[in-house]
Nucleic acid binder design. Structure first.
Lengths: 226, 226
DNA sequence: TCAAAAGTGTTAAGTTTACACCCATGA
DNA sequence: TCATGGGTGTAAACTTAACACTTTTGA
């Protein structure tokens, strides 16, 4: 291969993942205590370096899979952090992604072996480097997107009650939502389908279980707004 | 310095700039015909490599200044493109930014010397690599942001008529706007200030010139929506 | 005198918000 | 039987959209 750019500098490129889960009516992040230098023992996002033969997106998927064992997870690129001194070890440019996962479906052994823990988003400890800024940006972007596109369902199991869906959106927005107004909107979105199954765990009376029908959503290019 | 990451691969990191201008009631992009390999002679965005001692943001500012002579330009990071084969020369990860500039205020000699030209956004020729995708993303992001924050003024000179401002937003949205509704909204934003100056160029009758008062906007944290 | 752009209010439609009670069930 | 969460409709406030004519002036 011809080397056109040989006069230029190469840099380390990493990915960092802001991994959202929904647990006990609160958003949680999967954070880990570093087992490597620099900053051993301190809290950080899950990250890793981009390799020569993989795309940046693939690196993010790989890093997420290394931690959770999950594939085909909903991920979005958030922002690239490129300050010279952001990593006190060496110069690293980091591309941040967020991932939305169903908190009941991941490889718990793998997560434990990485020294990772789910932490409520309001109780996040100080993070290394610029990771707090990454979290803040990812959270804001996820919030915006969740209001306009049906990505929140990635945080729920396939079947969910309307109360659970409402609690999810309350956690995302950080504010209470009126129950009747919320259900009115959901009722207008016919790709949020009522099943004939009933959840008897969360209440005595039982609540209908719903599911999100992605095909129906894509087909009719329906409006989404929650 | 301790080399923590020496087992990892380094990559070329570049920045590419989608440079918007507003000319003849249309959005324009500043594009150049490459004078270097690979893809010599074909149209592309202005780009450059990130150096070891500069942040990625600074690289974008430098690259923009190299082409236009302008500093303190409004810029936003858009997205990072990281496919392995995106640049057929060598592996390059590119961070894309957009810039909004007043099309009357730039160094025309510098632009000419780079073989760059303003091209109406509806008449953009085929671009190299993934640059068309970069333009599409930048345009969409700029459009979203322009509706919620007062960034459009960066595309205008300090003084402008309301008709010109409306034409700008029509170009950004790609659709006509009702004149009375538009002026009603503008009138409610007291940080868009009427001056006692009048523009006699665009009409015989003369139109009042307005200016955007950034301090007033920041101070009152006013709502913006156009 | 007329062409060309500036400027100006009102009404209808649609969207968003606020709000309170009955229902079904298991403990 | 009662405590708990499930489920339901309406009216007011606000926002957005549609729409047409008069004014000024230089050519």
């Amino acid at each position: 291969m011809v080397k056109y750019y040989s006069a230029e500098t190469k840099l380390y490129v990493s990915v960092d993942c802001v991994i959202f889960g929904f647990h006990q009516d609160a958003l949680n992040l999967l954070l880990l205590q570093r087992k490597m230098e620099p900053a051993r023992g301190r809290w950080s996002l899950m990250g890793g370096f981009v390799k020569a033969n993989e795309s940046v997106d693939d690196a993010a998927k790989r890093v997420l899979a290394e931690l959770t064992g999950l594939e085909n997870v909903y991920m979005e690129q958030v922002h690239t952090f490129g300050a010279v001194e952001r990593d006190p070890g060496e110069r690293v440019v980091s591309v941040v992604y967020y991932a939305l996962i169903d908190i009941d479906a991941y490889d718990k052994e793998l997560v434990r072996s990485h020294n990772a823990h789910w932490i409520k988003i309001e109780e996040i400890p100080p993070l290394i480097f610029d990771h707090e800024e990454m979290v803040a940006l990812a959270r804001e972007q996820m919030k915006q997107k969740a209001g306009r596109e049906p990505i929140g369902f990635n945080l729920l199991p396939e079947l969910f009650t309307l109360t659970r869906l409402q609690n999810l959106y309350e956690a995302i927005y950080g504010e209470a939502i009126d129950k009747r107004n919320f259900r009115k909107k959901v009722a207008e979105m016919d790709f949020i389908e009522k099943t004939d199954k009933v959840d008897k765990v969360s209440s005595k009376r039982g609540a209908s279980l719903y599911k999100f029908n992605m095909e129906a959503y894509n087909l009719r290019k329906t409006k989404f707004k929650l």
